[in-house]
């Protein structure tokens, strides 16, 4: 029994690490820039297919794709920011949301045109093997994906905390006007921040593709997970997002083990509603600047 529980916990923690990076991009973009990126999960889906294409066509291992995705999606994010987001600053919040919703539908359907609605999997050499850690059998892919996710979270945390650019980004999130008068190029930093958020989404897509099957038209489910992590962890804080991701991962594996079928969704949505009710003041402050 105890061993069973430990296996569930290990599974949940590894999944949680991946959910944490799925939520991290959304959290940073929402918390620091106040942009509600409805299209976040569409970029996650693109990340999954990025890994899929590299694996099928060129035989590149998803572990390498994970690192390749970062610069590729960073550039994609900056392009989207320049083309779309800079124009959204001038329009009302509801219109901004509609535009992001349009972007999500656009990406999803372009994905469907290119890859059809078939469900895909990536079967690397290590996909079906497992390792024994301290008497526990752990699937090798989950371990690898979890470690990659943890590394990415650590890099983001260190970047925001210790570098000058990271400090400027934090300044911008605290007070945009003050940051501007202190000589920070807010527009360039915003572009960069959005690019980083999308890079994170792309990498999360690669990590998710290693474990779960995926198809273009089921991407909204990842928005649900990412959003849950964001709400639970609060906005724009890397460490809290990590903890929230772990909680969601643990909860999912525990529910899956002890409850019949998909009641886990019901549990998660009730949790989501409870957090929204309880944390409403804290959230309102952060969203006041939202597009």
């Amino acid at each position: 029994m105890l061993e069973h529980l430990a296996a569930i916990a290990a599974d949940g923690i590894l999944l949680g690490l991946i959910y944490a990076i799925a939520g991290l991009g959304l959290s940073l973009v929402l918390g620091i820039m106040g942009i509600v990126n409805v299209a976040h999960s569409a970029f996650i889906m693109l990340g999954s297919f990025f890994a899929f294409e590299l694996f099928e066509r060129l035989g590149i291992d998803p572990i390498i794709s994970f690192f390749l995705a970062l610069p590729v999606f960073f550039v994609l994010g900056t392009v989207v920011y320049r083309m779309l987001l800079t124009r959204l600053e001038r329009v009302a919040q509801a219109q901004g949301l509609v535009a992001m919703f349009g972007l999500m539908v656009l990406i999803e359907n372009l994905g469907t045109i290119v890859w059809t609605t078939d469900t895909r999997v990536i079967t690397a050499s290590y996909t079906n093997s497992s390792v024994v850690v301290g008497g526990l059998f752990i699937a090798k892919v989950k371990l690898i994906a979890g470690i990659l996710a943890l590394a990415l979270t650590a890099i983001f945390w260190a970047f925001l905390r210790f570098t000058l650019v990271g400090r400027a980004i934090r300044a911008m999130s605290q007070n945009r006007d003050a940051a501007m008068s202190a000589g920070i190029d807010v527009r360039r930093l915003s572009t960069m921040m959005f690019g980083l958020g999308i890079a994170c989404a792309g990498a999360a897509g690669v990590a998710l593709a290693m474990i779960f099957p995926f198809s273009p038209n089921t991407q909204v489910q990842w928005l649900a997970w990412a959003f849950l992590v964001v709400i639970l962890g609060g906005l724009g804080n890397v460490a809290n997002t990590l903890v929230a991701g772990l909680i969601v991962g643990l909860l999912q594996t525990l529910c899956a083990a002890f409850l019949p079928f998909d009641y886990v969704y019901l549990v998660l949505y009730v949790l989501l509603a409870a957090v929204l009710v309880l944390r409403r003041e804290g959230l309102t402050l952060a969203v006041r600047r939202a597009i």
Binding site: V38, L272, R280
Partner: peptide
């Protein structure tokens, strides 16, 4: 009860 995009996302 809260403002912003939470309703849209949910």
């Amino acid at each position: 009860r809260i403002r912003g995009a939470y309703f849209a996302l949910i």
